[in-house]
């Protein structure tokens, strides 16, 4: 018993050093106090069931204290890792700060790509809508030599939808990390500890604890993890692989879509034609595709999906670990 007490004191030692840990400790003490009162009432009135319930709940509280102690250690280790510029590149001192900085960079990249796609779509639509007309004294003609550009509308529209999803996911993650920084450990965790003390509210308490830990650690960890994956892809160990990754990190090419609606052949003075212009434009679009792919699919779609799945899976596992079986599969379906 003495060894167990000593172990507990050692595990709880870091609790004295930071703000949220202090609040969590107060919540644990509050729960212990409530259980003590229940035990005393049971002892005073000779109700064995109450004493047994208080004892049982106290063991749950000890398990919770061990979990919090592990959390303190785990949080410090993760902060140390995430503060490493090799991973985050942001110079942040916390995991959440590093993840937020990473999301900001990805968001800026995706927004820039979205603007670029929108600009291409704008140009293509204007060129595609052009029709040249000429009529004198009721006689004339109308030529729509640029109509083929309208075929770009459907794929660009799809690209807009995908980019929009990516932007939306990034904003959602940004908001969740903002919430975690402000509330996860200073508010949700201690409240969860207190609620978990009572059997009636054990499910709610366990869920709040799991939500706090998932939001505070697993979500930003997913972001950093995806950054590391991306960095490894862009900066492979062997020089021979550069040819593979280079096109994905090249700058965007200018896509110039120009068309003369009245011209049906080559211009005699330049030898240029609408067809040649279109081919040049399509080639530039094709080369840009790989630049879009890395940012859109790896950084802005796979990354958020990975992080959000880590969060929802963590939520499910941690609710069970906290002794509350909450079916959070509905949350996973949001991803």
């Amino acid at each position: 018993m003495k060894a167990l007490t000593a172990l507990l004191i050692i595990l709880m030692a870091p609790v004295a050093f930071a703000a949220w840990q202090g609040t969590a400790a107060v919540a644990i003490m509050t729960s212990a106090g409530i259980l003590g009162i229940i035990y005393m009432i049971g002892m005073g009135f000779g109700i064995n069931e109450l004493q047994m319930t208080a004892k049982e709940e106290f063991f749950q509280l000890i398990a919770m204290m061990v979990m919090i102690a592990l959390l303190v250690g785990g949080d410090s280790i993760l902060n140390a890792i995430s503060a490493n510029p090799a991973f985050s590149g942001s110079g942040s001192t916390t995991l959440q700060g590093a993840a937020n900085a990473s999301i900001d960079i990805t968001l800026a990249n995706v927004t820039a790509l979205m603007d670029s796609i929108a600009e291409t779509d704008h140009d293509a639509a204007i060129e595609g809508s052009k029709a040249s007309s000429c009529s004198i004294l009721g006689m004339g003609y109308s030529v729509s030599g640029c109509g083929s550009y309208t075929m770009l509308s459907a794929p660009l529209s799809m690209a807009g939808g995908i980019t929009g999803f990516a932007v939306g996911e990034l904003y959602t993650m940004k908001r969740l990390i903002e919430l975690s920084t402000a509330f996860a450990f200073p508010f949700l965790l201690p409240l969860g500890i207190v609620l978990r003390t009572f059997k009636f509210t054990r499910g709610a308490g366990g869920l709040l604890i799991a939500l706090a830990i998932s939001l505070h650690i697993l979500l930003p960890m997913g972001v950093i993890f995806n950054d590391m994956l991306g960095a490894t892809f862009l900066d492979p160990p062997g020089a021979a692989d550069d040819a593979l990754s280079a096109p994905y990190q090249a700058g965007l090419q200018n896509v110039t879509l120009e068309c003369n609606p009245g011209a049906t052949g080559e211009e005699w003075w330049s030898g240029d034609s609408n067809a040649a212009n279109a081919v040049r434009g399509y080639h530039a679009l094709r080369d840009n595709l790989r630049v879009y792919l890395f940012t859109m699919l790896v950084q802005a779609t796979l990354g958020p999906v990975l992080a959000l799945l880590m969060m929802s899976t963590g939520l499910r596992t941690l609710t069970s670990l906290a002794g509350a079986e909450v079916d959070v599969s509905a949350i996973s379906r949001f991803v």
């Binding site: 979205m114 796609i117 929108a118 779509d121 704008h122 140009d123 293509a124 639509a125 204007i126 595609g128 809508s129 052009k130 029709a131 040249s132 007309s133 000429c134 009529s135 004198i136 004294l137 004339g140 509308s153 459907a154 660009l156 529209s157 799809m158 690209a159 807009g160 939808g161 980019t163 929009g164 999803f165 932007v167 939306g168 609606p261 009245g262």
Partner: peptide, 24 residues
């Protein structure tokens, strides 16, 4: 003296924005 020019949609091409906005 006649009708010579190009008809166009100078503000056309918001398919990207419209698609994204429709989803949201």
């Amino acid at each position: 003296f006649g009708y010579s020019g190009v008809s166009q949609q100078p503000l056309g091409g918001y398919a990207v924005q419209t698609a994204a906005m429709n989803i949201f």
